[in-house]
């Protein structure tokens, strides 16, 4: 068995309000992500804002991207959402197989 070829990429994680689902996923693709994963999440943060019909329900969006796309996404989110919405976002370094899958040609 051949050893897997690993590529260093960035994992962008966004945790935010459910109402932003459509907007955030559309913008992620516009900013250069090739895909994303959305999972429901719950928790409490500094704002403690719960919105929507199910209090406490939020979402977590993850996307594996290259580092320039990661920066574009983070600054976009900071500019559009940090002031008024409960949104947090961070970047972590990951190693993935099939690295070309996550980068736009």
């Amino acid at each position: 068995m051949e050893p897997a070829v690993l590529t260093r990429l960035r994992l962008v994680t966004i945790v935010g309000e459910t109402v932003l689902r459509e907007r955030l996923t559309r913008q992620l693709l516009e900013w250069g992500a090739t895909g994303y994963t959305v999972t429901p999440s719950s928790g409490k943060g500094s704002r403690g804002i719960r919105t929507g019909d199910v209090p406490g329900e939020g979402l977590r969006i993850e996307a594996v991207v290259d580092s320039s796309t990661a920066e574009r996404i983070l600054s976009g989110i900071a500019g559009l959402y940090f002031e008024h919405f409960s949104v947090i976002a961070w970047v972590s370094e990951v190693q993935v197989v099939r690295g070309d899958k996550y980068v736009r040609p």
Binding site: E17, R50, T51, E83
Partner: peptide, 20 residues
């Protein structure tokens, strides 16, 4: 049910705790 998401998207600086 119907109003909160619509308000959240249009008037993000309105405090949702008050209306809910």
């Amino acid at each position: 049910i119907a109003a909160p998401p619509a308000v959240r998207l249009t008037l993000p600086d309105a405090n949702p705790t008050l209306s809910l």
